[in-house]
């Protein structure tokens, strides 16, 4: 069972009824945002981005930068101001562990949420355990809408079991959504 919500304007969500799992695709202003529930920690999600970028030329080109700008918040609510920092990467980082390692090591020990900007893409990992229950996390990416299928490939790598099942089921509809928005924009 899945709750499906399509607002007809590029926002498409599939949600597990009564559960924490979801997948979301939003297309607006030339950008695509794709997000899903995950059980993977930050490092594994970033590792999936790196792995997909190592063989996906479009994503690799979009993420082509030697610097990562990150903003993160920890769970310590007495210090809600987010931390910003910049991380340098060596050339040819896709496919290496440098991307995931350096960002994870730079993040607060009690990281609750982190957003990573690299090239023309952004990635966000959220620990939702404080509001949604233990072990509930989400991971999402933002890039040019032409990369929606590349973003979905990353979600397929990091998504939980429910996400895997429903990404397969709804992939044709998501592709049609992306194509429809492209057509409407022309």
């Amino acid at each position: 069972m899945a709750e499906v919500r399509d607002d007809g304007m590029g926002q498409f969500t599939v949600k597990q009824p009564g559960g924490p799992s979801f997948l979301h695709v939003g297309i607006a202003d030339g950008d695509a945002t794709v997000s899903c529930s995950t059980q993977m920690p930050l490092r594994s999600c970033l590792g999936a981005v790196s792995a997909v970028a190592s063989w996906d030329r479009a994503l690799s080109k979009n993420m082509g930068a030697g610097e990562v700008h990150a903003i993160a918040q920890g769970h310590d609510i007495s210090n809600p101001e987010p931390q910003r920092y910049t991380i340098s990467l060596a050339r040819g980082w896709p496919g290496t562990e440098e991307f995931a390692d350096k960002i994870t090591k730079s993040a607060p020990e009690d990281v609750a949420v982190i957003r990573v900007d690299i090239g023309n893409s952004s990635w966000q990992w959220d620990d939702l355990s404080f509001s949604q229950g233990p072990g509930v996390m989400s991971f999402g990416g933002l890039a040019d809408q032409s990369l929606v299928t590349d973003l979905i490939e990353v979600m397929f790598q990091v998504g939980d079991e429910w996400v895997h099942k429903h990404l397969k089921e709804f992939y044709p509809r998501i592709e049609a959504l992306a194509r429809g928005i492209e057509t409407n924009d022309q």
Binding site: T13, K15, L23, G26, T33, S35, L128, F130, S131
Partner: peptide, 12 residues
């Protein structure tokens, strides 16, 4: 509330 409609609140 994010777009997938799972609201959260700060603990304090």
């Amino acid at each position: 509330t994010p777009p997938w409609n799972t609201p959260s609140s700060p603990s304090t």
